[in-house]
């Protein structure tokens, strides 16, 4: 068994566009541009990027809906172009922001039907369906027709559909898109719980919500214009941004703070005098250095009024790498479309 749940090498996927008045010769759109990823089993991996960055196309290739134009992709050790059946037995997919479902079936019927596609014995499947419906708070709706569900309820039902076969690898494509705050929180909480209960199961999550990636993912790849620009843990990515974390220290007036730069481990210091106090921004070699800074201030009888550690967010990382905020990138895509 491959130790990698997902592996892509120089994966490229292009689309040919139709000829139109605006585009008389047609053309080729590069949706995924040479993505190379290695996702080990048991990881919750996030693809973070604005709309149109290529996240959904990448997922479609991995779940065997699309063939790669060039490069290769393997899921659970199987080739996406040739070994589709082996892959499909090991995965499932949930997409957010859509209203899929056979509207005239009840919730339970719909889920039972999909459980049969995965070869689950009927009785065990119904037990599992009820269990999962309880977990996502949809049990009371089990005999309602799918067409009568709100979009949030449908999303939860589709999450249950994705989880039913207990897949080795779960693809979640914007799973909280279009959900209200409460429903999105429920979905995230359940995703976390599902992974916690099942070490060894892998999730590939696409999202354009920074906080979602930060909250859920073990590692994140930032994808922009079809290419992966950086891959790391959220903490390491934050650390990369503008020198990583820093401290903001407010003391009684210092009248010059350059001497603080002499404290071993202090890498950079910016001080600003205010009304009877000084605010100092400190970048340190490591967090332990702050003890030396505090001692140096105490030796000079300077009172510490406040001290806080500031972590850069993924948003900072994104801005630094892509050159604009995620929302701005989304808007740019919207304008192009």
């Amino acid at each position: 068994m491959s130790t990698l749940a997902i592996e892509t090498r120089d994966l490229v996927r292009t689309y040919r566009t139709r000829k139109s008045a605006q585009n008389p010769s047609g053309g080729t759109v590069v949706a995924v541009d040479g993505i190379t990823l290695q996702i080990p089993r048991g990881e919750l991996f996030g693809l973070l990027g604005p709309n149109g960055a290529g996240k959904t196309t990448a997922i479609k290739v991995l779940v065997t809906l699309l063939l790669p134009t060039s490069g290769s992709a393997r899921v659970a050790g199987f080739d996406v172009a040739r070994e589709t059946q082996q892959i499909r037995e090991r995965i499932s997919m949930v997409s957010g922001g859509e209203s899929s479902g056979y509207g005239l079936l009840t919730v339970r019927e719909q889920l039972w039907m999909f459980s049969q596609f995965y070869g689950l014995p009927s009785r065990a499947a119904l037990g599992r369906i009820d269990e999962l419906l309880k977990v996502v708070g949809l049990f009371e709706e089990r005999h309602r027709r799918v067409s009568a569900l709100s979009s949030g309820m449908r999303q939860k039902m589709n999450l249950v559909r994705g989880l039913l076969p207990d897949p080795e690898i779960l693809f979640l494509d914007e799973p909280t898109l279009g959900l209200d705050v409460g429903a999105a929180r429920d979905v995230r909480a359940y995703i976390r719980e599902w992974v916690r209960q099942r070490p060894g199961r892998t999730i590939l999550l696409t999202t354009h919500y920074m906080h979602e990636a930060e909250e859920l993912c073990d590692r994140v790849a930032i994808i922009h214009k079809g290419a992966v620009v950086v891959t790391d843990t959220p903490a390491a990515l934050r650390h990369r941004a503008a020198g990583g974390s820093y401290f903001i220290l407010t003391t009684s007036l210092l009248d010059g703070a350059t001497w603080l730069g002499q404290v071993p481990g202090v890498q950079r210091i910016d001080a600003r005098d205010g009304d009877g106090s000084t605010e100092v921004r400190l970048e340190l070699a490591d967090d332990g250095v702050i003890a030396g800074v505090v001692k140096a201030l105490a030796d000079r009888d300077r009172r510490i009024l406040s001290l806080r550690k500031v972590e850069p967010s993924l948003e900072d990382v994104f801005v630094q790498i892509v050159g604009r905020r995620l929302e701005e990138a989304d808007e740019a895509v919207g304008r192009r479309e």
Binding site: L65, Q85, R88, E89, S92, S100, G101, F114, F117
Partner: peptide, 12 residues
């Protein structure tokens, strides 16, 4: 129904 992608990617 918008279910084709889920039916198609199931192992049937």
């Amino acid at each position: 129904w918008k279910t084709l992608r889920y039916v198609y990617t199931s192992p049937i």
